[in-house]
Amino acid sequence: MMILEIKNVVAGYLPDVNVLQGINIHVSQGELVCMIGPNGAGKSTVLRAISGILKPSQGEILFGGKSIGGLRPDLVLRQGIAHVPQGHSSFPEMTVKENMLMGAYVLNNRAERERRMDKVYEMFPFLKERKNEKAGNFSGGQQKILEVGRALMLEPKMILLDEPSLGLAPITAKQVFETIKSLKNEMGMTVLMVEQNAKSGLAIADRAYVLELGVERLEGPAQTLLSDPRVAELYLGGTLKS
């Protein structure tokens, strides 16, 4: 079942300068989809257009059959799409517990927030053990997992991950990828992920898109793309335009 559908979306940060040039992407329920591509291909822009930070000028974004293109970020969040942005998005001076509560801030019910927090703690016990520590004391990988845990506080139907391995040591990055995989395998979560580290991203994904200059150039099962010579060529400075 298709949960997210992006049809011919055109969007950009400045008028008349479009980053996305009529892109088409779809994600099915319970699928882990990875977008790869060189710098400036528009990978993060796709996520921003979905979560409402950026308004598409053309095209359609459907979530569960409903159009969400151009909706305010908080309303997209309420639809059940959680966005974990690039870099550190936790509050470094707040405790782990407070960070988790911030994840469900739009939720007005205290008991419900506590219940969801317990559920996330069950998944990541180290967050519970260190709940009174400042998030800023965490290592990069631990912060990333905290951010994923925070995103789960809204019990989203789908999670958008923007370069989860950015700036992490290889070992930590591996742990973060394991976490993402377990989101899908254990929770049945639908994930759309952007990854600069193509090899690791493709290794855990079901399906993948290769983006270049604001459109999708290749699409297919992640394992197939992993061994596609054209993907390697793209990363070595080639182009797929031909």
Binding site: E129, Q142, K174, Q175, E178, T179
Partner: peptide, 9 residues
């Protein structure tokens, strides 16, 4: 406890 979740070193 991170190690409990992951097998990595």
């Amino acid at each position: 406890s991170m190690a409990d979740i992951y097998d990595s070193s």
